[in-house]
Amino acid sequence: MSTVQDALQALTDLTPGRQQLLADAVAGLSRAQRQLPSKYFYDAHGSRLFERITHTPEYYPTRTELALLDLVLPDIARRVGPHAHVVELGSGSGRKTARLLDALHQPVAYTPIEISRAALLSSIELLAPALPHVEMLPVCADFTRPVQVPLPTRPAARRLVFFPGSTLGNFAGDDAIALLRAMRQTMGADGLALIGIDLHKDPALIEAAYNDADGITAAFTLNLLTRLNREVGSDFDLQGFRHRARYSTARLRIETDLVSQYEQDVHLDGRTFHFQTGEPIRVEYSHKYTDASFDHLLQQAGLEVVAHWNASDPAYGLRLLRASAQ
Rank of each mutant, 00 (worst) to 15 (best):
A218H: 01
H85Y: 05
L199F: 09
A10M: 08
A307Y: 03
R48E: 14
D212F: 05
D202G: 06
L224Q: 05
G317W: 02
E284F: 01
D24C: 10
G17H: 11
V149G: 01
Q33V: 15
L199C: 13
M1D: 13
L252C: 13
N211S: 12
V232F: 12
D43M: 13
D291M: 00
G28C: 01
I113K: 03
V266T: 09
R63Q: 08
L68Q: 08
I216A: 07
D265K: 13
D142S: 01
S122V: 12
R154L: 13
L222T: 14
Y59L: 00
S122N: 14
A103K: 00
A292W: 05
Q35F: 12
L126F: 14
P16I: 13
S166N: 07
D214H: 05
G317P: 07
A128R: 05
V86N: 01
C140I: 13
G165D: 07
Y210E: 03
F273Q: 11
K288P: 09
Q239I: 12
D257A: 12
N310H: 14
A130E: 14
A301Y: 01
P132R: 09
L298E: 06
P74N: 12
R99D: 04
E65C: 04
T64P: 06
A77R: 03
P74V: 10
R227E: 09
H274N: 12
R99W: 08
R319V: 14
Q33G: 10
M136H: 05
A315K: 13
D198M: 03
N211Y: 04
A103S: 10
T62H: 10
R282W: 08
P129K: 05
P146A: 01
R184E: 07
R48Q: 14
R230L: 15
L258H: 03
A156Y: 00
I113H: 05
F241M: 07
A84N: 09
E58W: 01
L29K: 07
V161G: 03
H200M: 14
Q20P: 01
G191D: 09
I113Y: 04
R271W: 06
G173A: 15
T226Q: 15
V26G: 02
